[in-house]
Design a protein around this nucleic acid. Sequence first.
DNA 1: ATTCTTACA
DNA 2: TGTAAGAA
Length: 147
Amino acid sequence: MSRSPSQDLDEHADALPRQQRTYSIGELARMFEVTPRTIRFYEQEGLLAPSRQGQKRIYREKDRVRLKLTLRGKRLGFSLAEIREVVMMYDAMPDGNARQLKRLLEILEEKRANLDRQMEDIRLMRLEIDDVDQRARDVLRQLGETS
DNA sequence: ATTCTTACA
DNA sequence: TGTAAGAA
């Protein structure tokens, strides 16, 4: 579970240079510390859809963000299917169809509810850990005073 | 040197 | 997902 403490915290680093730079599978693999195999695998699973220049895969900013979301989802323990839903929503926005947008809003609210529930669970879990930590320290202190 | 596909552990 | 093999 080794992870570089920055990779995932540049949410807004791609605010403007949206669809300019392109990346090779190797470059993306290096910047996210995964192997090209992993990236091709996610493509098979439908989480990535890079354009091609012949056989070579060409990744754009959009793809980089997708990969970022995918890896984050993996870290959070989401299934590929769940990650796919989020990733799909990320770029299912372009058209301005009112009905479709309202539908998207419903889905987003549902996802938001799930996330809130998870956050609460995580908060409680964190409390549990703090509790065990405290008790462990207490026991340790006891042992120290005794011996 | 890199990437691609396919297949198997 | 890793690794291997052969092609581009």
